[in-house]
């Protein structure tokens, strides 16, 4: 098992980008695909896209992000790739429905993005689980799922919705 303890750079750093480009040709760049949730973990067991088992043990002050480089050796590089976030896009059929959907998303601690009259819900689990939770709103027609949404624009903000407790 490969034990990695540091973030040694970022794939967008000019010199590192050049090295990674060369190493790609040699087939020695390995990627760790992480969800946004797992990106928060400082310590975890993961597997690269080439099957290498990795014990990731970062300092508490470290923070992973998309493109973080964890190993840069002549014969091997390992970098982190953020999995494309999946969204459920909701529309409301009335102001009352919009209020209820917004309240409900907050109460469920879902991460959302506001987009005009649409509410984008970041999926941190199976889409069906979210639809089941929303079934009362959908059945009454207070909210509707907008299918086949376009990819979110760059710079999406993840908002933790406050809730009443």
């Amino acid at each position: 098992m490969l034990r990695l303890t540091d973030i040694v750079g970022h794939a967008t750093d000019a010199d590192i980008a050049e090295r990674l480009h060369q190493m790609e040709h040699d087939g020695v760049v390995e990627r760790i695909h992480l969800s946004r949730r797992d990106l928060s973990r400082r310590r975890q067991r993961v597997t690269t896209d080439r099957g290498t088992e990795v014990a990731l043990m970062l300092d508490r002050s470290s923070g992973l992000d998309n493109g973080a480089v964890l190993l840069l050796e002549p014969a091997r590089a390992v970098l982190v790739v953020l999995d494309e976030p999946q969204w459920l896009v909701l529309g409301a059929t009335s102001a009352a429905g919009a209020l209820e959907a917004g309240y409900f998303a907050g109460n469920m601690h879902w991460k959302v993005r506001f987009d005009g009259e649409r509410l984008w819900v970041l999926l941190e689990g199976p889409r069906d689980d979210y639809l089941k939770r929303l079934s009362h709103l959908l059945a009454r027609g207070h909210a509707q799922v907008i299918d086949a949404p376009p990819a979110p624009a760059a710079g999406v903000r993840y908002l933790a919705v406050p809730h009443a407790h």
Partner: peptide, 11 residues
């Protein structure tokens, strides 16, 4: 250090 099989995290 990164490839050291005994590498330990801080904390």
């Amino acid at each position: 250090a990164q490839l050291n099989p005994h590498a330990r995290p801080r904390g």
